[in-house]
């Protein structure tokens, strides 16, 4: 092997990109690079040839800490938390409408803006 391709000097970078200023960063993929500067330029060539992009991050995979496989199943959420979601309050609109109709019938008006 030639010493120009000494893979020991390459590290894995995970690539994240942001589509617009208001968007969250999204994981794209990973690549091998000798340093962050090269990783940034390779990320553009590899993953952003077409997609619009506002900003770009590369992070050494060693600096990312994730859940081990055996802990991942505990991320699943029990489906008993409708009180946390708007779907648990589907009756509200109808109730507001009824109060409005009753009020307008009583006051014989369509105003009240």
């Amino acid at each position: 092997m030639s010493n120009q391709t000494n893979n020991e000097n390459f590290v894995i970078y995970e690539v994240f990109s942001q589509k617009t200023v208001s968007a969250s960063f999204v994981h794209q993929f990973s690549l091998l690079a000798p340093n962050a500067e090269v990783a940034l330029s390779m990320a553009r060539e590899n993953f952003l040839r077409r997609e619009p992009c506002f900003n770009l991050w590369v992070v050494k995979r060693d600096d990312i800490h994730g859940l081990p496989p055996e802990e991942r199943p505990f991320l699943e959420r029990l489906d008993n938390k409708s009180y946390r979601e708007t779907k648990g309050y589907g009756d509200l609109q109808g109730r507001w409408r009824r109060h409005k109709d009753e009020y307008e019938a009583q006051h014989n008006t369509k105003s009240g803006s």
Partner: peptide
């Protein structure tokens, strides 16, 4: 305000 009034 209209909603407060609608509830009476």
């Amino acid at each position: 305000l209209p909603r407060i009034f609608h509830l009476g």
